[in-house]
Design a protein around this nucleic acid. Sequence first.
DNA 1: GTGTTTATCGTCAGGAAGACGACTATGATC
DNA 2: GATCATAGTCGTCTTCCTGACGATAAACAC
Lengths: 252, 252
Amino acid sequence: MPYDPSAFAPFAVTVDLVVLTVRRHALCALAVRRGESPFQGRWALPGGFVRPDEDLSQAAARELMEETGLRAHDPDAPAQVNGAHLEQLATYGDPGRDPRMRVVSVAHLALAPDLPAPRAGGDANSARWAPVEDLLQQGGYGRDGEQAAPLAFDHARILADGVERARSKIEYSSLATAFCPPEFTVGELRRVYEAVWGVALDPRNFHRKVTGTPGFLVPTGGTTTRQGGRPAQLFRAGGATLLNPPMLRPEV
Amino acid sequence: MPYDPSAFAPFAVTVDLVVLTVRRHALCALAVRRGESPFQGRWALPGGFVRPDEDLSQAAARELMEETGLRAHDPDAPAQVNGAHLEQLATYGDPGRDPRMRVVSVAHLALAPDLPAPRAGGDANSARWAPVEDLLQQGGYGRDGEQAAPLAFDHARILADGVERARSKIEYSSLATAFCPPEFTVGELRRVYEAVWGVALDPRNFHRKVTGTPGFLVPTGGTTTRQGGRPAQLFRAGGATLLNPPMLRPEV
DNA sequence: GTGTTTATCGTCAGGAAGACGACTATGATC
DNA sequence: GATCATAGTCGTCTTCCTGACGATAAACAC
């Protein structure tokens, strides 16, 4: 007898978060230490079960708030203080990805400005911002000499997908401003691009590009010298979300 | 007592397919008529439950084969006859999207060359290729005078997301060749772009662009006059998957 | 003041794209 | 068979964008 298409097996559905930020010129992701088996003591992406009455995006926003205190931006609302960009990334449902049961995880990508130390939440013993380079390299040693154990479950794959999404999306959208505080300078925005892409950009051409794209940056009138050197103009993110023509990621 | 984060509610997980093709200069999607309640008699996207032992992409490939007879391309394998491009699109899990139970649907996007009439499969009474314009317009009348009822569930939203993904992806990838037979002419490829984007492109500039992009097209040596006019060179899709610089979608 | 750092403006050459003219090779029609 | 319509293909020209890089400006450290 063929498979009954009306039958279905129950699945557990979770949301996992790839929360990215730029700290000290490095692209970092939020990692939590697992307090339970499986993968007890290993680092993992924050996440949790979707509740029966909430949408996937609601569940992701709730987890983000629990882990970081960040409110997710309504895509239609203007930028606000202490908000983060949040979007669905992809869904991972390999039958063997969780040894306990069949779990389908809807991964989300969040981009946040530089934050104070993370606060632990949920069942995590601790949480930290770690350079994605450290989290993704297998078998190496992290900055503090700690053995860099691979992330739990398939979270390395999920993190890699999230990083690649962020890298490509700042090319053709104004999303890089999500890594910046509400007011920022052209130089700070350039350092975001440099950290996310891992390349050095020409400050003069970058300045011409971003200030010449209508709707990308809005000058606030203020200036700052917090980066040292000559005072720099402060900008807010403009209404434009799509950059046309895009910002080109250098070859190689 | 707060919510127990270790508890989870069981969900049903399905895959839904947005299968796109180009027929008679129009972007068309595969729609199946629902044979069961809810939305009995309405058009919907093909799909079905994920089985306990299969991955999400396997489930999508299986559904695609059941509905169209198309084999999904292995992304790493070269193009083959009767194959279609298949990729994950997004996941939809609004609590109220299916009145029967909590269903999370992992939508996939498939791009196929022009095919003979579809064959019905599963619990669908019938299947057809319908212009996406007809499927997405609400309350109008289709080409055959039939009242254009909205698609079942949230499938209009899923279809719209899939169409937008296809429209943007052919800009910077060679994916448009997935709509073409194994051998095709520059003009046929141009008509694909015109149908997907709904614009007219300059044949001379298009020819210069696609033949000047290394790795995009490989001449087979043959020619054809199946489009009338002067014989045109035949090409196969080359190995390049990313177009740099991209094909630019005209403004407006 | 001198040096260092960062920001900002300007110049120039090369490449890509839009607009469009011109020519070519078929089949269809008179 | 001449003519016409249809598609395909090659070029030209202008404009815009980018990468490379010189030069100036405004702060701070000493």
